[in-house]
Design a protein around this nucleic acid. Structure first.
Length: 501
RNA sequence: GCACCAUUAGCUCAGUCGGUAGAGCACCUGACUCUUAAUCAGGGUGUCCUGGGUUCGAGUCCCAGAUGGUGUACCA
């Protein structure tokens, strides 16, 4: 013990530490020398939360309580001190008097630093200035903070530090914690909504031999014992539909997806998606389900369906607008694809609107391109855009009344995509042809085209009932409901480059 | 990937025309028994992101790189 301390003292002297770090380490050593090593503490009996002491002051006044938390500010005035103790519920002021705790304990307390974690026992009372506080009769350090916290007034602003050291961000920027509490509540309400409708929550593989269900480049990893490459999933779709084939009828999964693509304000390489499948339902049922779910979640979590995103008012109250992609491109883009079929005409129509295309572009791809370029950013209020071209929808049931289109929709709010849904393709012969088409695109160099999944085709041949499927990007929904500009503000630990320390 | 911007004390930031680095908070020493961004007196604690270059002299100018941010490309 003593030897240990000597070694530690030497280390402190040898390490090239600045004054703040050196002083804190010396304070720790001093505690350890006097048999008060804070790290020996294993637990602390907590009888009250900061928030309930304040909310229930009338009944709590005069009671002795014990509270634990982090010391976030100190105001010493000689033989009496005030400080703010933060626990997860909020903060409570401590009032410490030398007369109450004794000279020795008070001297020890004076050396406590902002950031130290302490447990206190004392009586609930109100100061002369009217602040509800605890008159401390005993205080014990439960953990020593060896690093100084960021500034109390300006908080932590450096985005690099905020994302890499999220614990500091959470500690000093209260609105950050609120976002993640809200995120948790949003996910909880989605689960409640689906559970109430008899959906079963399931878990499907993240390690996929064939990544499917979306057009995206995957991450590749390797399993040693099987000596095989595996992909991190890009979507759970094909597994969830296997469960529908297996008779589960209503399933959903909320989980992490991984796409090996660029990073932006709207994209993180790993992100959270909710996907659900409902047998005997079609994409119109999915529209109804979507607007009901999102509006219910907003109502439960925010208490309203009238929200503001980055200064724009949005009304999530159902029903949402429904517009076919053809009508949308006609209305906002001024191109009537119903009247176009000749490739040269299509190219000319796009060029007329300032959209350059290379090589041959099919009718469906051109329609989708025109939609992205000319329409998307106009869709501020919640809108279902439906009936997507078949070329870009390899897992979707054909619209039998209209060749070239599929029973698919996407959700747009504030010019941004939030989800994707369709009547699932359940004809295995058709699916095989769609996979063939995707494989041709792959061979032509499209790295994002779907890979053929023979095992899934086999499953389909046993019979997939008519099924509606829906996927919603949870991070983007959380951004919308918390008015967050960047996806990194709703992901606790966004993907960052490794930094040399 | 490309473009632009940022990087100075633990944190938030200033730094003039290229002339030996500055504030607030935090921290240290002292005073103070109801403060609350406590106050008062004293103390500056620094790899100016890194490496080159120009210059008598670089936080400042030039080049390369690192990290982050934003835009764009990519991304049903």
């Amino acid at each position: 013990m003593t030897e240990n301390n000597e070694i530690r003292e030497n280390n402190i002297q040898q390490e090239d530490l600045n004054e703040i770090l050196r002083v804190r380490r010396e304070k720790l050593l001093e505690l350890q020398r006097t048999g008060k090593d804070p790290f020996e503490q294993v637990k602390y009996e907590v009888t009250a939360k900061s928030s309930e002491i304040i909310e229930e002051f009338e009944t709590r006044e005069g009671q002795t309580v014990s509270v634990a938390g982090r010391l976030m500010s100190k105001r010493g005035m000689g033989k009496v001190s005030f400080c703010d103790l933060h626990d997860r519920y909020g903060k409570i002021q401590l009032y410490i008097r030398m007369n109450d705790v004794g000279e020795e304990k008070y001297a020890e307390f004076k050396k406590y630093d902002i950031g130290d974690i302490v447990g206190v026992k004392g009586e609930v009372f109100k100061t002369q200035k009217g602040e509800i506080s605890i008159k401390v009769s005993d205080i014990v350090m439960l953990s020593k903070s060896l690093q100084p916290l960021p500034e109390k007034w300006h908080g932590l602003k450096d985005t690099d530090l905020r994302y890499r050291q999220r614990y500091l961000d959470l500690l000093v920027n209260p609105e950050v914690k609120n976002i993640f509490v809200t995120r948790s509540r949003i996910i909880k309400e989605i689960r409640r909504f689906l559970d109430d409708r008899e959906f079963l929550e399931v878990e499907t593989p993240i390690l996929n031999p064939i990544p499917g269900g979306a057009a995206a480049r995957p991450f590749i990893t390797h399993h040693n014992a099987l000596d095989m490459d595996l992909y991190l999933r890009i979507a759970p779709e094909l597994y969830l539909k296997r469960l529908i084939i297996g008779g589960m009828e209503r399933v959903y999964e909320i989980g992490r997806m991984f796409r090996n693509e660029g990073i932006s304000v709207k994209h993180n390489p790993e992100f959270t998606m909710m996907e659900l499948y409902q047998a005997y339902a079609d994409y119109h049922d999915m529209m109804k389900l979507t607007e009901d779910m999102v509006s219910t979640v907003a109502q439960k979590v925010l208490g309203t369906c009238q929200i503001t995103y980055q200064g724009v008012s949005v009304d999530l109250t159902p029903p949402w607008r429904r517009l076919t992609m053809l009508d949308a491109v006609k209305e906002y883009g001024g191109i009537d694809f119903d009247k176009l079929s000749d490739p040269e005409e299509i190219k000319a129509a796009l060029k007329h609107k300032g959209i350059e295309t290379e090589g041959n572009i099919g009718w469906g791809e051109a329609l989708a391109l025109a939609f992205e370029e000319l329409v998307e950013h106009h869709l501020i209020q919640p809108t279902f855009i439906y009936d997507y071209p078949i070329e870009i929808s390899p897992l979707t049931k054909k619209k039998y009344s209209r060749p070239g289109l599929t029973e698919r929709f996407e959700i747009f709010i504030c010019g941004r995509e939030y989800g994707n849904a369709y009547s699932e393709l359940n004809d295995p012969i058709d699916q095989k042809e769609r996979f063939d088409d995707q494989m041709r695109k792959r061979q032509a160099g499209d790295e994002e085209a779907n890979m053929e999944d023979k095992d899934y085709l086999l499953a389909m041949e046993y019979g997939l009932p008519p099924t509606g499927g829906l996927g919603i990007g949870i991070d983007r929904l959380v951004m919308l409901l918390t008015d967050s500009y960047s996806i990194r503000d709703v992901i606790l630990f966004p993907t960052m480059r490794l930094k040399d320390m």
